[in-house]
Amino acid sequence: MKLYLTEESLFAVKLSVKTAVCSTAFVVLFGIPLAYLLARSEFKLKRAVELIIMLPIVFAPTVTGYILLVILGKHGIVGSLIYKFFGRTILFSWFATVIASFVASFPLFVKTAQAAFRSVDEEYINVSYTLGRGKLYTFFNVSLPLSRAGITAGAMLAFARAFGEFGITLMIAGNIPFKTTTIPIEIYNAVSSAQFERANLLVLISAVVSLSMLFAVNRLLERWSP
């Protein structure tokens, strides 16, 4: 098997790493509070929120991508605001790859983190309250540390998913050389122009990253499970 490293491939690797890191950071940042809310409290529209988060898992990536195109486009609800303030659209920029990865991996993280928060026995929280500690202190000193294994596992799954994102990325970031060509898109480009040698290395990198994440997640959950 021949492995070729071209400039395109190098760019794709760098972009994918950047995208996956940024996307995972946002996923964790927004996912933790949301997962905690879903795990610990009852509120109106809770079911609706849960459902909407899960949509990218069941929708065809092109469908999700299309919906995002509509929302983030110049005339969309969110897109028009962005256009108003920044004078440009975020579609078909490198940040669009981050958004695509974010949307695809968010449900994976939220579900895992929610399960992790739910597995923390409520009595720990009760005891913390009776010891005079407020909700925020209890969250950072009890709930979060006690569910860190599940949260880390969720973040790794999200990273792996972000690293392999293709369909939504293609829809909202496009296939612009040296701009939005992540590893999966570059693999597609290589194969569609019959340059299998160029694809091989990228496939290998992608597979290694995904497998090591999966391995780490399994080890983590095994070690921490009661």
Binding site: D121, E123, V127, T130, G132
Partner: peptide, 20 residues
């Protein structure tokens, strides 16, 4: 009064000590 202000020593059946 919220639990934080009541100053009660609460010992549930299990899961009393923070394991971490």
């Amino acid at each position: 009064l919220p639990p934080q202000k009541r100053k009660v020593g609460y010992l549930p059946q299990s899961h009393t000590l923070f394991p971490h």
